[in-house]
Amino acid sequence: MHDSTKILGGKTALITAAASGMGRAGARLFAAHGAHVILADVNAAGAKNVADEILGEGGSAEAHGVDLRDQTELDSFITAVRSGHDVIDVLHNHAGITGPRELEFDAANWNECMTLNAWVPAYLTQQLLPLLRNSAAASVIFTASTAGVRGVAGLPVYSATKGAVIQFMKSLSLLLAPEGIRANAICPGGTDTAGMRAAFQEGAVDASLSAIATTIPLGRVGQPEDIATVALFLASDASKYMTGTVIPVDGGATV
């Protein structure tokens, strides 16, 4: 049963890449505030673990193992969501990968990065639009990146995909505004997740995080919960007059 007294009570929220990091934090926070959460992740066991955590705390959740980069799996997942739900109130397109560094791209890794970071959120939104239209106050949230609004020398492909996400979101927000469906993007800065830690050399994680913190005006690297709380705001009626916005959550780094 949904608890209608909570911020997201009675709402159904779908979050991609929900097994760890920012996605996990968002899923747990959405559930704590009353949402039924649909978790999707390539790590099926991880997604189930998060769903079990939510259920163990009295929340409502279901887990789907799906490689969103695989069109067949993506379509099967969409079919499952459509068959299991009449309404999606919140679609949080969070999944993404860093992709190739500098100019080390080829057709395969370029397309993989563009597929997961740009095609998947656009396609999911398109295909789940009928369910979003059944909501009284639908919110589509895209996880972009500060790399989508400023250049990052080491990650030109990633930056290109996140710039694409932002422009898709802005156009979508204009397209759907007459229907009352909102679309906004969160741009995380450096955030302490397993994915970020994996990018550093073994034994140099703490030093690397400390070095990044010195470039951030607030003096620390972000935590997954910092991103999740902004996602909760965008999912809720507290942001009901916001659409088409790009919100940096980066400790002031882009300032």
Score class of each variant (00 low, 15 high):
residue 34 G to P: 06
residue 197 R to N: 08
residue 22 M to G: 01
residue 231 A to T: 06
residue 48 K to M: 12
residue 127 Q to R: 14
residue 14 L to A: 06
residue 191 T to R: 06
residue 134 N to H: 11
residue 165 V to F: 02
residue 227 I to D: 00
residue 91 L to D: 01
residue 224 P to N: 07
residue 157 V to R: 00
residue 18 A to C: 05
residue 239 S to D: 11
residue 212 I to R: 06
residue 116 L to P: 05
residue 18 A to K: 04
residue 237 D to H: 13
residue 141 I to A: 05
residue 56 G to W: 02
residue 56 G to T: 04
residue 98 T to R: 13
residue 69 R to P: 00
residue 81 V to C: 08
residue 57 E to T: 13
residue 106 D to T: 09
residue 173 S to Y: 03
residue 19 A to M: 09
residue 222 G to L: 03
residue 72 T to N: 14
residue 171 S to K: 10
residue 76 S to I: 10
residue 214 T to G: 02
residue 209 L to A: 05
residue 74 L to T: 10
residue 101 R to W: 06
residue 49 N to K: 15
residue 201 Q to T: 11
residue 98 T to F: 11
residue 32 A to V: 06
residue 121 P to D: 09
residue 31 A to Y: 05
residue 197 R to V: 08
residue 247 I to L: 15
residue 32 A to T: 12
residue 64 H to C: 08
residue 222 G to R: 03
residue 185 A to P: 04
residue 223 Q to C: 06
residue 137 A to V: 06
residue 97 I to R: 12
residue 32 A to I: 06
residue 91 L to I: 07
residue 103 L to F: 13
residue 147 A to M: 11
residue 91 L to V: 03
residue 188 P to R: 09
residue 6 K to H: 10
residue 138 A to P: 10
residue 7 I to N: 04
residue 129 L to K: 06
residue 134 N to T: 00
residue 225 E to N: 05
residue 26 G to C: 10
residue 32 A to Q: 14
residue 249 V to I: 11
residue 131 L to M: 10
residue 17 A to N: 03
residue 190 G to C: 11
residue 66 V to P: 04
residue 93 N to K: 08
residue 251 G to I: 04
residue 98 T to Q: 13
residue 243 T to S: 14
residue 133 R to Y: 01
residue 56 G to N: 09
residue 54 I to G: 01
residue 52 D to R: 01
residue 184 N to K: 08
residue 129 L to I: 04
residue 198 A to R: 13
residue 175 L to M: 14
residue 246 V to G: 10
residue 200 F to V: 00
residue 60 S to I: 11
residue 251 G to M: 05
residue 230 V to L: 14
residue 5 T to Q: 14
residue 115 T to Q: 09
residue 248 P to L: 03
residue 151 G to Q: 12
residue 148 G to V: 02
residue 98 T to H: 12
residue 255 V to R: 11
